[in-house]
Amino acid sequence: MAVLQGTAPAHELTDLTDLGAAAPAAVPAARIEAPGAVAPADAKELSRDLLVRLGSLEEGSSEYSYVRGTLVELNATLVRFAARRFASRSEPMEDILQVGTIGLIKAIDRFDPAREVEFTTFALPTIIGEMKRFFRDTSWMVHVPRGMQELRLALARASDELEQLLDRRPTPAELAAHLGLEEREVIEGMKASNAYAAQSLDIPTDGEEPAAVLGARHAVEEKGFEAVLHLETLKPLVAALPERDRAVLSMRFGAEMTQSQIGEQLGVSQMQVSRILTRILKHLRTGLLAD
């Protein structure tokens, strides 16, 4: 059994509030060895006394930090208990426990020992609420406003209830009447629900071809994509060219001038312009392939 250093075992401890009242504020509270190993019954009693003491300490002091941290360790089992409800979720359990610990800290900070309620009764809803908020904010493939997320849940519950009553899927108008909303709001909520999860483009479809996938049905070839990709790749190569070479490229491919017209601008022959262009394009092609 974990004990306070220099004190009797936990079940024989006097109320820590008495200890705090009898000693000056500067006197540190008795330390608890291995708070995480304290038995549940003892942890409950110690938490009650430490919560009272926490309220008498100055926030930010070392003693306040110690008591607060000890309370977190003593009640870590509450976080693990709450996390079991979400064990089937895709999020890593480590992340769920971390979020639950944040909820536990919030519960410690908000708890009022003067109220006749057990800390566990107060803390569990706070911890679970923090976990649910985490799932609500991270589980959507595309982030939508929180109001839309809550509307999706309301629509799902209402749809299940009406489907049992009507023996068919309810219409948006029926859902709107059931929830006291406008039909437009219901339709927006139904559209927002599509953002909750995304389907892989590689999943098989019911097409005639055995290897048909969803991506083959909806994919569209963007003809301009390759041109944009090449242009972005060429930008730094063109920027590194001498000024005269950049001018030749601009006149030939920007202003669409003929080689003769470019020659007149530069005071050179058409043959020389052709050689200049060949050299420039060879240099750009080499740099493009190298990248």
Rank of each mutant, 00 (worst) to 15 (best):
M1Y: 10
A2F: 02
V3H: 14
Q5G: 06
A8L: 14
P9A: 02
A10M: 11
A10W: 15
A10T: 05
A10Q: 03
L13W: 13
L13Q: 14
T14Q: 15
D15I: 07
L19N: 11
G20I: 09
A21H: 09
A23S: 13
P28G: 14
A30V: 12
I32K: 06
I32M: 05
A34Y: 07
P35R: 01
P35L: 02
P35W: 01
G36I: 07
A39N: 11
P40D: 01
D42F: 02
A43V: 04
S47I: 00
S47W: 05
S47T: 15
R48G: 01
V52D: 08
V52W: 03
E59N: 03
Y64W: 09
Y66S: 10
R68D: 05
R68V: 07
T70H: 04
V72C: 03
V72Y: 06
E73A: 10
A76D: 07
F81H: 09
A83W: 08
R85Y: 02
F86L: 08
A87K: 14
A87W: 06
S88R: 13
S88Q: 13
S88L: 12
P92E: 03
P92I: 02
T101K: 15
I102R: 14
L104T: 04
I105W: 03
I105G: 10
P113Y: 03
P113T: 06
A114E: 06
F119Q: 02
T120E: 12
I127C: 13
K132D: 05
K132F: 05
R136P: 01
T138M: 07
W140S: 03
V144T: 05
R146Y: 13
R146N: 15
G147M: 08
E150G: 08
A154T: 06
L155K: 00
A156I: 08
A156W: 15
L162I: 04
Q164K: 11
L166Q: 07
L166H: 10
P172L: 04
G180C: 11
E182V: 05
R184W: 09
E185V: 13
V186L: 10
V186T: 10
G189N: 04
A192W: 07
S193D: 04
N194E: 12
Y196G: 04
A197R: 11
A198M: 12
A198G: 12
S200Q: 04
L201A: 09
A211Q: 05
A216I: 04
A219R: 05
A227F: 08
L229W: 01
H230E: 07
L231H: 08
E232C: 09
K235W: 10
P236M: 13
P236E: 13
A239N: 11
A239R: 06
A240C: 10
L241R: 01
L241W: 00
R244V: 11
R244T: 05
D245A: 02
D245S: 07
D245N: 12
R246F: 09
V248N: 02
V248R: 01
L249M: 01
M251Q: 01
T258V: 09
G263R: 00
L266T: 00
V268M: 04
M271W: 12
S274V: 03
R275Q: 08
R275T: 10
I276E: 00
L277M: 00
T278E: 04
R279W: 00
I280M: 00
L281Y: 04
H283E: 00
L288F: 09
A290G: 06
A290Y: 12
